[in-house]
Amino acid sequence: MEDRSGTVPTTFADALGEAMARRGATLTHLRDRLAERGHPVSLTALSYWRSGQREPERVASIEAIPELEAVLGLETGALSRRLSGRARRRVGAVEPFDSLLGDPAVDAVIGEEDVCRVSSHLVVDVGAQGEIVRARVRQVVVADREGVDGVTLFVGPDVGTQENAVVMTAVAGCTIEETHDLENGIRGSRLVFERPLGLGESTVTEIEATTEGGLDLETDYALAAEQRLEEALVWVRFHPDRLPSRCWVYFSEGGLRHDWPVELAGARSVNYRQTGFGPGSLGVRWEW
């Protein structure tokens, strides 16, 4: 798609604005046509998209992009391939994780569209009483734009509850600036990098999660991959005086879920690793 000057639009906002101008389409027209197709998008959101102040990011917005392309008479991907960061990788691969977040304030998810998550490791240490001593999350991210200074890390509640008593502490590579309690017990913490990143530059962050008050006796820990990761790993390490009687590993990805038993066979830990994984989740659960 080219404008009259012969230049090719490089951003989502440019491509949207040029397509609207060529079709003579107003924001109201787009809103009405999208609503007719079952994808209601507000005039405010459309205005933000056209101005470049924001890009589509919520589930409903991502799902509306193919319809928006059709309404404007564009080829498939004419808009979606110009999305930056997180949104571009999620078109056609939106997972139910987003619905758990409800409708958080914009500040609660700052940075999500600015980085590409490369790998994420969850390491869980279980104590002599079967309690969770600590859980650490180490992740590698790459900046999708110049000057990215942080990202949001989400932590969910124990299985079967909506209460989140997790306290997160920065271990290395970042500080924790603020925390937001979202819907369904999801908690998002803003991780601030040691310094802003250049475009394409990577960094590593590590945080520790502990429980506020009482023993955490949870027997199921999972890592949620919101983006497609080069590597996802869950590693549960048991105290030698408290080994489980049974263990399973499991994953959920693209509508497919599967779990299977694993034997410790003299080992004191269980790990489950996947490459080229996500969006989805993988985890380890056990019985005493």
Rank of each mutant, 00 (worst) to 15 (best):
A64M: 03
R89D: 11
R54A: 10
L72H: 06
P104V: 10
E112Y: 08
I110G: 03
R89F: 01
V71N: 02
A60L: 01
E57L: 04
D107L: 05
P96D: 12
P56Y: 03
V109H: 02
A93R: 05
G73H: 14
E113L: 11
A78K: 10
R117D: 06
T44Y: 05
D103L: 13
S120W: 02
Y48N: 13
V71Q: 07
T76Y: 08
D107S: 15
A87G: 05
R90A: 07
S120R: 12
Q53N: 12
R86W: 10
T44L: 07
S51F: 04
P96G: 11
H121P: 00
S119L: 09
S99F: 09
E55G: 11
V115H: 10
L68M: 15
E75Q: 14
T44N: 06
S51V: 02
L100K: 04
R81S: 15
E63R: 15
L122D: 01
A108N: 08
R117Q: 13
V106L: 14
G92V: 00
L101D: 05
R117W: 13
V115K: 08
E95M: 00
V109K: 01
S51C: 03
A70K: 12
A105T: 08
E75K: 14
A108K: 04
V118N: 03
L68Y: 02
L101A: 09
H121I: 03
R82L: 07
L101K: 10
E75T: 15
S119K: 06
Y48D: 10
